[in-house]
Design a protein around this nucleic acid. Structure first.
Lengths: 186, 186, 186, 186
DNA sequence: CTTTAAGCGAGACGGTACGTCAAGTCTTCGT
DNA sequence: ACGAAGACTTGACGTACCGTCTCGCTTAAAG
């Protein structure tokens, strides 16, 4: 009955389907991606996909969860330097990674699916949380002005990187991250 | 031959199709929108649509052009105040407009379609151009530091508005625009 | 609106589909026959089939109508000789013809579909009518006993041919038809 | 190993599956009947069915064997009377019995499956054997003409009953069996 | 003031993908 | 050890749109 918990085919299928989903998402985008092509690429039957997920959105949300990697902030150096490091990592990540390649699809899907939206909101909140914590620390230590609103500043710091990637369709050059930090944190 | 330039039937079809496209886009989103439903809603044959546009993306891009309102920068007041006004207008626009509602779909589509990418790039460049011109003016008049990189500053100013809309799925509160301007332009 | 009445594609599709249906029916039987295989064989889209017929049964019934050939009784010779000729033709037909090859499928389908049943009943009634008319003529001319029930006799004459084909799965040898006639008509 | 011969569970499953098969067959017909629905109805796993039978046809053939009642020819009276009795029993059987209801499906299946064909041929041969034996007896006793071909006569006697059932889709009225016998056996 | 040719709506065409269902196979677990 | 349960791959189901096509009507223009 709960045999499924141990049947190795289930796990093999799930991971094959997840990989295929990420690849399809990055290659053709959410709209053009089809369940049939995922099934074909993963070498599984369509029914196997529908057995585990309710549909395309559900599948994509679950596949994206699997590639959400933890980001850690450095602990050494001035807050400005550490913020720069974090943003540079983000810039590099946005320039080339599975998640970044799926980002446009993700944003589009989030518009019509609560699950995807929650996932994506969580993803950004996590990233932003890192920055906010650093800024809080800088304010506490006196390195940054007490007037600074960390939430707002985090959005202002990360904003241009996403803006560049999504609106101008050019990755933000990691080399210019320092300029942004200088502009915003004075 | 070039009768079409004058034939009123063509214009009637075009505008009926454009309206239907905007309505469908707002109601069901880009992904769920179909050419058939647009044809149905506009009361035209499918072929009439394909006669004038290459496909869904082309049609949507063209429909959006028709609702793209010109944005004009104010000419009175300090540059800081005028930048604030422009960004506030953008924040309001992003919070509720047909174009803003289609933005996620556009960004996604732009990944895979050159035409859409160009359309979208043009749209953002135009907006950004306004800001850059203002900043240039501020530098020239001495109101802003000569060290300021207008291109970068424009991305830093507009970035958080899009970041909020696209990544957090919350419109950026127009009331906080002033804070951003203060943070970035000192 | 009634443009379809003249569109030559419609007739081409219909006849291609009919042929493919008869071939499939004869080759694999009613149960194993699929709409997809018919569409593939006819070189048409599945939707084209569903556009014209409600389903498999409807399609089969309509395809069989197209191969229903008229049978004519000879007018010369004794009634016994003419009955023999008609039955021999039936025996040959049952041994090798599209309709005969589809007969088992037809009988099976008739069990669950009124349309197919009516078609098949009509087909047998027609054949039987020929025999009955001949027997009536024989009774009228005095060649056959006035006690003979033509309806019953027709069933007794044709019965063994179908019995052999359907129950023993062997075509009834045309050469033995004369014996049946001798047995039944004395 | 051959534990199955003794394991009471096996027998319980077999009979539950047989009953379920007969019920499904009668309710929805051969074509619409599925292994899954039989398994469901019998309260058994699909694999249990496939462990014992090769497929639907095999299962149906086997289920029908279980309800094949032995037919015995009467031993008293004239051969003509006894032939009439046997044919009347057949007419009644064809009018309403599980086997008769499955006959069209069987005939169709027999075209494409050797096993079913053999089963069905055996079924008719058995019935016909009864008739042939009676006719042989009649010839031996002098009641019937020595010229009579018992094989042929059997087909001519039984033919109309099947003809009526399969081609006209009307059960042959048992009351008219005597007329057939009179016509064929003089 | 008619031709005449365009643009039109309608919708059939061959296709692809949808999400569902059943086929027959295979693996795990519980009795 | 064997059967029940159920996940697996496969492939057909009938539907919806895709983008292309053919048709007959309508209508604006050029003769």
């Amino acid at each position: 009955m709960i045999a499924s918990a141990c049947d190795p085919r289930i796990e093999r299928s799930r991971s094959a389907i997840h990989s295929a989903t990420i690849e399809e998402l990055a290659e053709v985008g959410y709209g053009a991606m089809t369940i049939e092509s995922i099934a074909r690429r993963a070498g599984v039957g369509k029914a196997t996909i529908y057995r585990h997920w309710r549909g395309k959105l559900d599948l994509v949300a679950s596949a994206l969860e699997t590639i959400k990697e933890d980001v850690v902030a450095p602990t050494e150096g001035t807050v400005r330097a550490r913020v720069t490091t974090v943003l540079e990592a983000l810039a590099v990540h946005l320039a080339d990674s599975d998640l970044a390649r799926c980002l446009p699809a993700l944003i589009s899907a989030a518009q019509y699916d609560d699950g995807v939206r929650e996932f994506q909101r969580g993803f950004s909140r996590e990233r932003r949380g890192l920055l906010i914590a650093l800024l809080d620390e800088g304010i506490a230590s006196g390195e940054l002005s007490a007037d600074l609103d960390p939430e707002l500043a985090a959005a202002v710091l990360a904003g241009p990187l996403f803006y560049s990637r999504l609106l101008s369709h050019e990755p933000f050059p990691p080399g210019r991250v320092a300029q942004v930090v200088a502009l915003v944190l004075g």
